[in-house]
Amino acid sequence: MEPRLTAWFSEFSYSYSGVVQPPNPHWHPLLAALRDRLNDLYGYKFNSLLANLYRDGHDSVDWHTDAEPALGNSPPIASISFGDTRNFELREITDIKTDEDLTYCKRIRVPLTHGSLLLMTGATQHDWQHRVPKEYHDRSARVNLTFRLMHNSS
């Protein structure tokens, strides 16, 4: 259902865009070490990871915010990229509600290179949508690890 491959690591399930990721508490030691290092460096308590494999430039994720209730208010998200460079785009959310009206809003493009870390904190999920668009030239594979803090929603 998704235009990329995903894997979920958490004691919690996660639902977004009609996709349900069941709990998977079995972290690979390297992923757990990255999580622990991020928590130590930035003072977060990341307990979940959505791993994305973008196989080539045709894999993507469309405009969205990470505003699911299980993430809480103003969720921090740490995104680490490995592999080929892909553009990460943000567009400002305005009072206008249709995608057509968002054509002329403020936009930011960030090339995420191998080994880069992007932190989305504060009001990012309230004020901005983000995506990784399709690209129509040769791109090799890219793995993106997005660490999140999930809250028990029961």
Rank of each mutant, 00 (worst) to 15 (best):
H114Y: 05
N39D: 08
L71S: 08
S116Y: 03
F12Q: 11
R107W: 05
A33T: 03
D40R: 14
K134M: 11
F82K: 10
L31M: 13
Y16M: 05
E135N: 02
G43R: 07
R4N: 07
N39I: 09
T113C: 12
L49E: 09
Q129S: 01
L119N: 09
D95V: 05
M120Y: 15
L31E: 10
A123Y: 02
R109G: 02
L117E: 03
H151W: 10
Y16D: 01
D62E: 12
N152Q: 14
Y14N: 03
T124K: 03
T6M: 14
S74P: 01
S153G: 00
P76Y: 06
T6A: 13
A78K: 02
E2L: 15
D66C: 09
G18H: 08
P22M: 01
R55W: 12
I80F: 04
T6Q: 15
D36T: 02
V132Q: 00
H114S: 13
H151R: 14
N52D: 06
R131L: 01
I93C: 07
F88Q: 00
P23V: 00
P22W: 06
T65L: 01
S140F: 07
N144G: 12
L50R: 03
Y42S: 13
S154Q: 13
Y14Q: 05
G122P: 00
H28P: 10
N39S: 07
N144W: 10
V143A: 15
N47D: 11
D99G: 07
Q129P: 01
H130R: 11
A141D: 10
Y14R: 06
A123F: 02
Q21M: 13
V143W: 14
M120H: 15
E135T: 09
S17P: 05
S154R: 15
D84Q: 05
I77C: 06
S74I: 05
K45T: 13
N87G: 07
R109Q: 10
W27S: 05
T121K: 15
S60W: 02
W128C: 05
P25I: 05
C105D: 01
L30D: 08
P23R: 02
Y42V: 13
D84Y: 00
L5Y: 15
E92H: 14
I80V: 15
T65V: 11
R107N: 00
D59Q: 15
E2Q: 15
V132I: 15
A78I: 00
E11M: 13
L112K: 07
W63F: 02
L145M: 11
A51N: 09
N144I: 13
Q125F: 06
G72K: 07
Y136N: 12
S79K: 04
L149Y: 14
A32E: 14
D62V: 04
P76C: 08
P22V: 01
